[in-house]
Amino acid sequence: MAAPLTRPAETPPPQPAPPTKRPARAAGYPGARRGQRRAVALFTVPFFALFTAVTVLPMLYAAWMSLFREESSGLGFGGTERAFAGFGNFTEALGNEAFLRSFGHIAFYCVLYIPAMVGGALVLALLVDSAMARARRFFQIAYFLPHAVPGLIASLIWLYLYTPGLSPIIDVLDALGAHWNFFGQDEAIYSVVNISAWQWTGYNMIIFYAGLQAVPREVLEAATVDGSGALRTALQVKVPMIRPTVVLTLLFTCVGAIQLFDAPKLVQLRANTMGEDWSPTMFIYTAAFKGHDYGLAAASSLILALVAGLLSFVVTKLGNRWKAS
């Protein structure tokens, strides 16, 4: 029997060669470096342009104005002339008792305000972060709401609450036999501290709470296994691990305190013993817009900026030592 015929094997059609891939550009490739520089410039140039427009240029203009003073001639009937004063405005500011006294007021304000506000915010954050806390989101929003109110409006609200005959707080205090004059010579500063603490405690509580959320859970579990109670864990584990957050908050609080203006300005409307130059910013405002001495105001503002910079440096140094301890 003849063997069946076999069909010759068909040769497969030729396949096209796979496309060759271009080698990826290394990170050090000149084109890649130019692209990175363009990306960096795209994000940083707008910031530096805005920073120059709203910070650097006003400071340079203030430095220029501080070198001159307005002088009148002809018994005040001949108008005013701008005369070069050199560092005379700085000497006058540093020799002004009201200007120097305003820094003393702010120092006493910081002694009262910073422990109350930062300590209160830290305690609230620890309470919200504790295992026994319930309705955390509600309390976060409730504590933050005072900060959502603009500072001027908050000062007006408390000015109403401080006014006898209008304030329900004073009515309650009178009913309890506790008489307190919120606009008294010695009590007015406590009124200012209360306004600032009411506005900023909830804001800093949110910052501390965010820092506590970054504490590793296994560290807290290890502390619990070692027999550490809730209070000891909070003070010896949680607080040391958010030291950078606490230092940053202290830095911002000190810089903000030295620029205090709206709260004492409104309280001063009823507390006449405070004076229009109670804080450095109030002194600058009075010198510029009531005394029309723009050279003195410019020199005082530069001195205030220098003090704020030195204070920031000191707080940062002390905070770094605390973090390293």
Score class of each variant (00 low, 15 high):
H292N: 12
A222K: 04
V246I: 15
M274R: 09
Q15A: 15
G76F: 07
S102W: 14
W322V: 14
P23Q: 09
L42I: 01
T55Y: 13
M1E: 10
P19L: 15
L231T: 12
F87T: 14
A17N: 04
R217W: 06
A271P: 10
D226V: 06
G275H: 10
A135H: 12
K323S: 08
P13A: 14
P14C: 05
T163L: 07
G202T: 00
I169E: 06
G76T: 08
A214S: 14
E97H: 14
V215Y: 03
F84L: 11
M65Q: 14
I189L: 15
L318D: 03
A148V: 15
P12L: 12
L173T: 06
P19T: 11
F99S: 02
E10M: 13
A107T: 14
S130V: 12
I284E: 05
G177I: 02
A41P: 00
V54Y: 15
A299V: 02
D277Q: 15
A308P: 02
G291R: 04
A263V: 01
P19W: 08
A305C: 11
A63G: 15
L122Y: 09
T6V: 12
L251F: 02
L57P: 01
G256W: 00
I170T: 15
V219W: 11
L94A: 06
N320K: 13
R217N: 12
L152A: 15
Q199P: 02
F51T: 06
L159W: 03
P280M: 10
G184A: 07
T286A: 13
A223H: 03
L145N: 00
P115I: 10
G319M: 09
P4T: 09
F47M: 12
L266Q: 11
G104F: 10
V123W: 03
Q36P: 00
A214G: 06
F90T: 13
T281N: 13
T273S: 15
W64H: 12
E276Y: 09
S191E: 08
G184Q: 06
L60E: 10
V123Q: 01
R7V: 12
V219D: 08
W64G: 11
P216G: 08
F144W: 07
P12V: 07
S102G: 14
L260W: 02
T55P: 00
A63H: 08
P280H: 11
E81C: 01
Y162T: 02
E276M: 10
V246P: 08
V192N: 03
R217Y: 07
A24I: 07
T273V: 12
G95T: 09
E70R: 11
L296R: 13
L60W: 13
Q140P: 02
F289G: 00
Y285E: 07
F289P: 01
